[in-house]
């Protein structure tokens, strides 16, 4: 069957309108997070759980996330992954690490010799996984495993950004040094247009000094 010019124009219009509707459904959310003394808060995690039937997220990235060990510190200090993701634990230090977790969400133990990368581990259960090193007590890291594919982690300036399908979301907040704190006054929020959230915690987040400069064991 041949397509007439009018039919062709209708087809084009239909295609663009579909694209347009899809584009309309995605909104950008920017977050600026400060503590009670207006200092930027780093490593805060916000999880957006849609209360509606959100469109399926495209096949998630199957390459393992990385929790590295550099200068006797976990890097990053906080890693957020969706449940089901694999995480690799390389050792960039020229010394041993003995990484472990006793957290209910994932219990494991990895003996990481120099420049050694263990087989990636799969994190299936949502929750907070505290990880430590039995050789270097001061090493501490967190893996936040989420059910929802929508999450952000604030940077050193307390900023983060995410594109979300428009709709209503349940909000959950977590920070390693602010137990039970939240900058949200309500549990859910509707995102129908792009917006910037200027958030403030009502507690002061103390600096967490990660270095091991001579304060370690000897």
């Amino acid at each position: 069957m041949r397509t007439t010019p009018v039919q062709f124009i209708y087809l084009l219009l239909f295609t663009f309108s579909c694209l347009f509707v899809n584009a309309q459904e995605s909104v950008s959310v920017q977050v600026n997070l400060n503590d009670a003394e207006s200092h930027a808060v780093e490593n805060a995690v916000i999880i957006f759980t849609p209360t509606f039937s959100a469109p399926a997220v495209s096949e998630q990235n199957q390459t393992p996330a990385i929790m590295n060990q550099i200068d006797k510190q976990f890097a990053p200090h906080v890693l957020v992954v969706q449940a089901g993701r694999f995480i690799a634990f390389p050792n960039a230090d020229n010394l041993f690490h003995h990484v472990y977790s006793f957290s209910p969400a994932k219990q494991f133990e990895l003996k990481l010799y120099k420049e050694f990368t263990a087989e990636p581990l799969r994190f299936d259960e949502p929750g907070i996984v505290d990880i430590g090193c039995n050789i270097h007590d001061w090493m501490l890291g967190y893996i936040v495993v989420t059910e929802s594919p929508y999450f952000i982690k604030t940077d050193t300036h307390g900023k983060a950004q995410i594109d979300l399908p428009a709709g209503e979301y349940a909000l959950s907040f977590w920070h390693p040094r602010a137990k039970d704190a939240t900058p949200f006054s309500q549990n859910t929020m509707v995102f129908d247009t792009s917006k910037t959230l200027s958030l403030q915690l009502d507690t002061v987040i103390e600096n967490d000094l990660g270095f091991d400069d001579g304060f370690g064991e000897y």
Partner: peptide, 13 residues
């Protein structure tokens, strides 16, 4: 015996 404050989210070890 030792306790690392960072692990229990306290400032003192």
């Amino acid at each position: 015996l030792r306790q690392n404050g960072r692990q229990v989210r306290r400032s003192w070890s």
